[in-house]
Design a protein around this nucleic acid. Structure first.
Lengths: 197, 197
DNA sequence: ATTCGCATGGTACAGATGTATCACATGCAT
DNA sequence: ATGCATGTGATACATCTGTACCATGCGAAT
């Protein structure tokens, strides 16, 4: 019963079970046993591949981050002009389709955990936003130099504001106060406001 | 040992103990026993005044909402002109001073809970944002008619964007990517952008 | 053929958690 | 004075949770 098995594949299988539970029922329902059942393996195996629960949580969070990044790169795709890149990056974060709704909800499930356990998780999870904001600034600056954005605009402020806005819009969609389409409309409106003379 | 006691006062004492724990350690650390200890009462009393844990959680959440509303009214204070009202409302939500940091953190602690338990909590917690957004729209429209905002601006879009932005800025402050002052600067910048000819 | 390490199953254990139950004291109405 | 409702304490109980431990099957190297 002990064929050489692909460790990475097993870890992926288990971690994604965790993410599925976090998405649908929240992290508080993600016990080791629940994860094992969801992944279709025994509790022992979850312990075997991720010694501790924190290990599992961290690994799954890293995978979630990778999924979001993959989605962003896919959405950027053939986008070439800065405005298209910015639009792609921002709108792909909004919970509009099934995948982004899943990712957003799962991140939300992690949110409280990250806040209450600053030491360990902060380093792992706090980087993406910062990096992304820098990327946005670069794109906006390029658009500005190309004349797509008024020269007197402060692109760093704009980038920070847009990113925060998308984040907040996502929360409102998850909270049921807005549909994904409405959130997207709000974003588009502000992008129109930014990209002009 | 059974003097007629002020029920509301006891409930307040216990509910605030829960909020204090939610703020500092997160809701996952807020067990009935922990709340009892924090409030300086016995476990039995927590059960007595709030029969069930869900009752306690809901009551505390309502109190948190009341605290935020009280803070907003206090911040609006003598503000008279629409722009001042809007600035007050939005900036008082940002985690800049101790009180708003506490409120924001505590709301964040509830966030995951609300998302994973939509039925019961949604009605109680989802109203403030909607009401607030309507209020903002009215203020912005008034400013627009007074000439403080360009007539071609879509104030509903602007209100939605600003509220989402403040929400997102708050998250970034809590996540340690920005200080409260920096978040306030981003907000001010966008208000300057909105309030013109 | 024996040995060793990897993969897996089963289960135990200690602690925490929400809730229920029993007990008892005190104040107020009768 | 008696009785009933109120406020409070102590504790029990069933369940869940993370982790540890023991056993065993199998492939590969010796």
């Amino acid at each position: 019963m002990a064929e050489k098995v692909d460790h990475e594949e097993r870890r992926r299988q288990i971690a994604e079970a965790l993410l599925r539970i976090a998405d649908t029922e929240g992290l508080q329902s993600a016990s080791m046993r629940a994860v094992a059942t969801e992944a279709g393996v025994s509790l022992r195996l979850v312990q075997y591949y991720f010694t501790t629960k924190q290990g599992l949580l961290l690994d799954a969070l890293a995978r979630l981050g990778a999924q979001l990044q993959a989605r962003m790169e896919r959405w950027i795709g053939e986008a070439r002009a800065p405005r298209e890149v910015v639009t792609a990056v921002l709108s792909c974060i909004l919970p509009t389709d099934a995948e982004s709704r899943r990712i957003t909800r799962t991140y939300a499930a992690y949110y409280a955990l990250v806040l209450s356990d600053p030491e360990v998780l902060e380093k792992q999870a706090a980087q993406p936003p910062v990096v992304l904001e820098g990327f946005l600034v670069k794109q906006l600056r390029a658009a500005q130099e190309a004349g797509g954005i008024a020269p007197e605009r402060d692109v760093e402020m704009a980038a920070a504001g847009l990113l925060a806005m998308v984040n907040g819009l996502g929360s409102s969609v998850l909270g049921g106060q807005r549909t994904g389409e409405q959130a997207l409309a709000v974003l588009s409106h502000h992008l129109d406001e930014l990209f002009r003379p």
